[in-house]
Each structure stands twice: as structure tokens, then as C-alpha cells.
């Protein structure tokens, strides 16, 4: 995936629902959901490469993305302000 993406703090993003199986780090419950970038974590080797012995792949920007729990789960029980924050690599994100 050669797509250049970079997001800044506070930007609204959507997690892509990539048809990618195996060792991926974007759990299904956030795919297709919209959240807000809350922190830029820097560049890391892509675990989706590392898990299969590919050590020379490009580094990927890693972001903390915050979601409202009520946007993730139907009938979420709790405060409407309850949130979930998750670390997502750039190639799983698009601007929203």
C-alpha cells in the first residue's frame, strides 16, 4: 500500500475495513467506525510484515484513535462520554 497518509491531533478518521486476514492489529469492532486522533505515536515497523518474517518493510505512522463507546456498541451501557482509545497504523485509516 503506497498511499501517503498523515493525520494530526484532533482530526476525524475512519478505520478502513480492509479485507486482510492473518496477523493484523486493527480489531474488527473498530473497522468502519469513525473516531478522533488523540495522539501521534511515531513510526513503527509494521507488525503485519514482521509477523511473516519481512523485516525490511516501510515503517508506519501509529496513531491513538479515540471513539465514543456509544458509536462502537449498540445499546452501550454507561456514560455517554465513555470512550475507547486504540492504537491504529496509518494504512488502516482514512480522513472522515
Amino acid at each position: 500500500m503506497g498511499r501517503e497518509v498523515s493525520f494530526s491531533d484532533g482530526e476525524t478518521v475512519r478505520v478502513l475495513d480492509l479485507d486482510k486476514s492473518g496477523h493484523v492489529r486493527a480489531p474488527r469492532y473498530v473497522r468502519g467506525k469513525t473516531g478522533t486522533v488523540s495522539h501521534l505515536l511515531g513510526k513503527f515497523k509494521n507488525p503485519e510484515d514482521l509477523a511473516y518474517g519481512k523485516y525490511d518493510g516501510p515503517e508506519k505512522e501509529l496513531y491513538r484513535v479515540a471513539f465514543r463507546q456509544s458509536d462502537l456498541w449498540q445499546g452501550y451501557e454507561g456514560n455517554l462520554d465513555d470512550t475507547l482509545v486504540i492504537d491504529i497504523y496509518e494504512h488502516w485509516l482514512e480522513g472522515a
Binding site: P27, F44, L62, N79, D82, T83, V85, I86, D87, I88
Partner: peptide, 15 residues
């Protein structure tokens, strides 16, 4: 408490 925000952190990556 009900009025406290519960913030869940899912550590899926390098942190």
C-alpha cells in the same frame, strides 16, 4: 461513579 468517563485503552500495537 456514573458521571466519570470510563476510558478503555486497547493496546493493539507497540505501546
Amino acid at each position: 461513579p456514573e458521571n466519570v468517563e470510563v476510558r478503555v485503552h486497547d493496546s493493539t500495537a507497540d505501546i
